[in-house]
Design a protein around this nucleic acid. Sequence first.
DNA 1: GATTTCCGGAACTGAACGGTTCCGTATATG
DNA 2: CATATACGGAACCGTTCAGTTCCGGAAATC
Lengths: 217, 217
Amino acid sequence: MDGTVEATAQIDPSPAPEGPIRPGRKRDHTRDPEIMTAAIDVLAEVGYERMTVDMVAARAKAGKATLYRRWPSKADLVLDAVGCMGAAKAGPLPDTGSLRGDLVALLSPRTVHDADHKLKVMLGLASVTAHSPELAESIREAFLEPRAAVTRALLERAKERGEISPSCDVGLLSRVSSSMVISRAMFEHRPVDRAFLLSVIDGVIIPAAGVGPAAGR
Amino acid sequence: MDGTVEATAQIDPSPAPEGPIRPGRKRDHTRDPEIMTAAIDVLAEVGYERMTVDMVAARAKAGKATLYRRWPSKADLVLDAVGCMGAAKAGPLPDTGSLRGDLVALLSPRTVHDADHKLKVMLGLASVTAHSPELAESIREAFLEPRAAVTRALLERAKERGEISPSCDVGLLSRVSSSMVISRAMFEHRPVDRAFLLSVIDGVIIPAAGVGPAAGR
DNA sequence: GATTTCCGGAACTGAACGGTTCCGTATATG
DNA sequence: CATATACGGAACCGTTCAGTTCCGGAAATC
């Protein structure tokens, strides 16, 4: 994964031994992002197994052959699409002065909404993770890790300023929220809304971090 | 789900208007449990999508036709199999005197091992949960809920005896462990072993429950 | 022993889908 | 304008698999 927004060029077997310049149309890579988003959307809607390459082509108004000209298989297409999604910006950390304030600040409607979209994509990919550690890792990198990294940073800062227990396991705590979100969506089929996220913050993360009751509220 | 070990009789369209008693063989339900376990095993090994009815029949040394005689579709077969799995015994709660002791007592090698098997089944079913809330609910009931119920009971007892904070959210905390297990297995592909489970207990649940540091250890 | 019903097993049917090929058209080079 | 290539679209191929049907044999009832 190169972290850019364009689709990664899969492979270029020709080691560029340039013969005479050939006439003809060039490959139109300007539409690659549309194809990637089409793939992601279909994925979110029907999941990997029910997603067909035809669906993606149709949604992107491209020919199926065009897709196969660029990605050797459905799996590669999806892998690339997921990789491209990782290329989100990392806005500056919130800094409200308290850990709880910072965590709550992450819950803007905007953030919650597109986390929801990403969540659907993840659920759609759930079945594949077992057979493809490679894809599982891509998913983790694109969806889980960025969020966890932010949380981890907030926790570390809080620890440095002595707000939370110096012994608490920051790495583990930073993964609590996403884990609970996933299993709620997957097996409880209940909405992952602001109220739920708040209850995780106030019912698990904050107390587990060793903030005395009522501190920072 | 009836909670018994035998497969649930799917439907019995005949309202028992008994004509003269007919000769002939009766349906042999003694092998149903074998079929159910075969289904569960295949599910754990290859997941719902790659599981074929032939595989199940072969493993149970039954004919595919026999399976279809009993369950109208692959989905029903799986649903029933999952339902049958819920019928585990609930041993007596551990009672070591401290919440941590009780939670650790749940981590016997036996328990951890078959939790691992159940986990594989859940991962195999992950893809279907999105399309079938019914199955998602069955899974929750068969795999998640029993474990959560035990944890919840332990937490409530600890709360009653004043060991943990009276304000802590027992319902939420009882789901922390399974959530973290699922996402670890699914996206991190790291082993769900005793060490990890201990770190969840000591790094999240115990401190989140408001046990003062070093209490009960 | 005749009859009825189930069994396991194998062959069959039909649909879905990954992947390929072909076609008519558009576009860029020379 | 000629050539070469990529495009969208559709037809096509081969496989896999859910679900059905048919068979010979074994039980259970009569």
